[in-house]
Structure formats: C-alpha cells, structure tokens
C-alpha cells in the first residue's frame, strides 16, 4: 500500500490558545520527513492533529492510500489508527504497570492489527532482541532506552503504513539516540513505512531525513528539499547553534 499525507492550511491549538497558524506540509510515500523546531513551536500539536487527538479549527489533513483520499479532520484517534497511521508519543508514554508484551499487545488493539499480531510481534522482537529477553518485565521498571524501544515497537504493532515519531531522543543518552534513530531507519526500510518525525536533535535527525521542515511559532519557516539543504541552512545555525 502506498500511503502519503498532505496537511493543508491548518489552524489548531488547545481551547482558545492557537498554536498552529495556516500550516501545510506533505509527506510522500516512502519518505522520511523531519519536523525540526525547539520546544513549544507546535511539532507535537501538529502530530496530535494528524492522529485526531486534537481537532484543528480549520484546514484539511488528507490521507492518500493508493489514490483513495480521505480527510482525517474530525476522525477519532481509533479511526486514524485503523486508517494505518501510528504514533510513537513523546516521552514514550508506556503503560508502566503492564509487562513489555502486554504493552505490545495494546499496540495491536484494533481488529485489523490483531490478525497480524504474531507476525508483527516476531518482527519487533527480531529488530529489538532485548525486548524479547525482557518481555515479562514491567515496562515501568526498564531503562529509558529500553522504554523507547517498547514505545517504537508498540507503534509498529498496529501495522501502520505511516509512522509518526514524536521526539524519540527525549531523555536518552547520546549513543542511545544514535541507536534509536538507526532502528527507525531499519524499521522503515523493512516495513516500507513512510515516516514523519518531530525532533529537536538536529544532528541525529538529518542522518535519516530525506527532507524536512523547520517550524517556528506554529508556522513553517523553511522547507528543505533535501538533507543537505537542512544541514547548510543559516536559520538552523541561528536557532540551534546560537551563532
């Protein structure tokens, strides 16, 4: 299935606080697109709009699956997951009192994912052998890096075509960030995923990015057509490196 995502001119936020202003992005099939921006600029809000956790005030979010277009605005999170979009939330948000395997099963809560549950479970255990060793351990008792593995694996369990990843580097040691980013690339290649990743860690993010956007105060400030364009951008130096 070839899925792509187009966000057209959305305004959105929390109650009367408007975070996103007339924001548009596209993610084409098979791409890894990064959303760069520091805290509080609307990266997570945009991902929440796509997954249906927040309803945008205006605009459309078009999911295109093999030419069949649906507007995701107004859809519930369950419907969005069923449509093939899965999110790895910021800060992992595991179910700490459940075991690793129970967390993974919850990733496959929707009916269509249940059918492929054993296949996907084997797949994520192959990618993250550590999780197989620890499958009966409570998720809350694991290290930050292992918890992030569970969060990403749980996202894969819903058998998505588009994977949204919200700040996979939060709270991880630098070598683990590098490992995690590498795993996301591996998952993407093996599962033919389309990936939209929000990140603050610029240096790690551009390692796997095909293209990217820089988001500042809820607006797209810069659209980069390639990873090189991102790497050589003046604005990035200004926002990230303070030079």
């Amino acid at each position: 299935m070839a899925s792509s995502l187009t966000v057209n001119n959305i305004d959105g936020g929390y109650g009367s606080v408007r975070v996103l202003h007339d924001l548009s992005i596209t993610v084409d099939f098979g791409e890894t697109v990064v959303l760069l921006g520091s805290n509080g600029n609307g990266k997570s809000t945009l991902l929440k709009c796509i997954t249906g956790l927040i309803k945008p005030d205006r605009g459309e979010i078009i999911l295109n699956v093999d030419g069949e277009k649906t507007d995701l605005v107004g859809k519930t999170p369950e419907e969005v997951v069923t449509a093939g979009i899965s999110m790895v939330p910021e800060g992992r948000r595991l179910f700490p009192a459940l075991t690793v395997e129970e967390n993974l099963y919850l990733g496959a809560y929707r009916k269509f994912a249940r059918k492929k549950i054993s296949e996907n479970l084997d797949f994520v255990y192959e990618i993250f052998p550590r999780l197989k060793e620890r499958r009966n351990q409570l998720a809350g008792s694991m290290s930050g890096g292992e918890q992030q593995m569970v969060a990403v694996a749980r996202g894969i369990m819903s058998d998505p075509t588009i994977l949204l990843v919200d700040e996979p580097s939060v709270g991880l040691a630098p070598n683990l960030v590098s490992h995690m980013i590498g795993k996301i690339r591996e998952l993407k290649e093996k599962k033919n995923l389309t990936v939209l990743m929000a990140e603050q860690n610029f240096n790690q993010a551009i390692k796997i990015a095909d293209r990217g956007y820089i988001i500042v105060h809820g607006e797209i400030e810069f659209t980069a057509a390639s990873a090189d364009e991102l790497a050589n951008n003046e604005m990035i130096k200004q926002y990230y490196l303070g030079v």
């Binding site: 997954t51 956790l53 519930t76 999170p77 369950e78 969005v80 997951v81 069923t82 999110m87 939330p89 948000r93 595991l94 179910f95 700490p96 009192a97 459940l98 129970e102 919850l106 990733g107 809560y109 929707r110 994912a113 749980r154 819903s158």
Partner: peptide
C-alpha cells in the same frame, strides 16, 4: 488497564 495507566497513550494506540 491501558486507560488506567496512561489514557492519552491508550488513545493514540487506537484503544476506543
């Protein structure tokens, strides 16, 4: 149990 542990995460996993 997922709702009890983390309702927002449950929702993003597609738990109704």
């Amino acid at each position: 149990a997922a709702i009890r542990d983390d309702e927002l995460a449950a929702e993003s996993m597609g738990v109704p």
